[in-house]
Design a protein around this nucleic acid. Structure first.
Lengths: 250, 250
DNA sequence: ACCATTCCGGTACAACGTACGAGAGGTGGG
DNA sequence: CCCACCTCTCGTACGTTGTACCGGAATGGT
């Protein structure tokens, strides 16, 4: 609909990309802008930090800037695109490893940087997109990851899935860590209430006969250790990758 | 607040758990119920299949059942809890492996079952919860995974993180697969438009100098292979786990 | 001075989750 | 048999969301 002009009107998807990849170009003419795109994105990031992704509303962001809600739409086509921009800005924080280091060092650094990012910006894990936005700094990160693996000698056909594996691992651990930190703090549930109802669960509903292994693992403290072992598991992952590299070299 | 009655009023969290772990017990008295909890959950599942998790609204579910919107609140405290129940029902579909098989066979089966589940119910990947709900069939799945690893001889302290690693991998791959299938089909974007704007992106914005490795990997077809290699990567993962098991046995 | 162009933001609408309370339909006690 | 009580049903309504629309304000080029 509304797409039959001879002059190819910019698609939604194109405006989205343009915003991410082009400077806003102030264009001289017309009224001066009170705000910058950067300021809007900053405000969004500020709001999301204290209200979570669900609490990120255009009205709140606008209020945070002392501006009417609709004003934001001068800078950003909509909420979705604002989130994209926020993700891109967050990924810009990554201090990506250069490939000159030995690949295991670089890969470990890559993983740590990403984990730090997700712990600083847990809301990224809440963005329900199927994949991250096609944004410059996101691609920078992927480029860096690929470069490490290619430099290590992994064939191109495996490089993509392996970096995906590492990304996936890091996100999983970060998600678990965040979950543990803010257990009941969401949804207005006080921590006391949360743990009360948890113990209610264990005493009332949990059936040690239905879940014998869980029970045994719990008693052995298997659920406590948790995430001190990020590096240990990561090393195991890298072992697997090293194996693939060696296999490819032969 | 409002929590100082001598008779301990059921907390929100407790009602949530009760719904998942107790039968609704029809209680005899009063007006007959037109619906079953199961019917409500089924309707929810039906709606979510054609509208996605964002499109799952109480009004739509109610309409799908031919009842008023508020009627649902007799059966379910709110949308959140409905989703919890839907997740539990989905996890009930899993055909979990018994532990008598060799652990690699069992683990592969575990992974495949989960992958199938996520591909059949992609909306589960959209539930923004930090962890899956504490529901019977979800725990069944975790129990099965833990049992496989414990039977394989992995020490209890590592069992939890390893099953987490596998889960995380499966979810990551499933997410990528779904992403590929329904690329632009979301958000009312026709597929043609999507691929148009994609090619616009590659020709207009993508900078082969900024992303040399990506370019090379792309040219080598590294992005095509994709997810035929689910089993291959999984095997690599299991190799790593086997290594940990052997190390623990020594 | 005029005007095209751009930004600002109030109003408004549709859709959402759900609190409230009036009515409808059923059971048990008298 | 009837009434009291209990439960389910759902129309109405409130607050919140994203954002379409449009009139008005500000600015630069001519």
């Amino acid at each position: 609909m509304t797409n039959s002009q001879p002059t190819p009107a910019p698609t939604d998807a194109e405006r989205r990309l343009a915003l991410l990849w082009d400077p806003p170009q102030p264009s001289g003419r017309g009224r001066k802008a009170r705000l910058t795109l950067d300021e809007v994105v900053d405000a969004g990031t500020a709001v999301v930090h204290e209200a979570g992704l669900d609490g990120l509303s255009m009205r709140k962001v606008a209020a945070h800037l002392g501006v009417g809600a609709m004003t934001l739409y001068t800078y950003v086509p909509g909420r979705t695109e604002l989130v994209d921009l926020m993700v891109d800005r967050a990924f810009a924080e990554l201090d990506l490893p250069r490939a000159e280091q030995p690949w295991r060092t670089a890969m470990t650094r890559y993983a740590h940087e990403h984990r730090g990012l997700y712990l600083r910006h847990p809301w990224i894990l809440q963005t329900n997109m199927w994949r991250l936005p096609l944004a410059p700094h996101v691609l920078d990160a992927e480029e860096a990851g690929l470069r490490i693996l290619v430099a290590a000698g992994l064939p191109a056909t495996q490089v993509v899935e392996v970096i995906g594996l590492v990304d996936t691992y890091v996100r999983g651990v970060a998600r678990a860590t965040v979950a543990e930190q803010s257990e009941g703090s969401e949804s207005g549930l006080s921590n006391d209430d949360y743990w009360d109802s948890m113990s209610t669960f264990w005493t009332t509903y949990f059936d040690a006969e239905r879940y014998p292994t869980m029970t045994r693992v719990w008693e052995a403290g298997g659920f406590d250790a948790g995430h001190a072992s990020f590096d240990a598991t990561l090393d195991r992952l890298l072992d697997g990758i090293e194996l693939a590299i060696d296999r490819a070299a032969a």
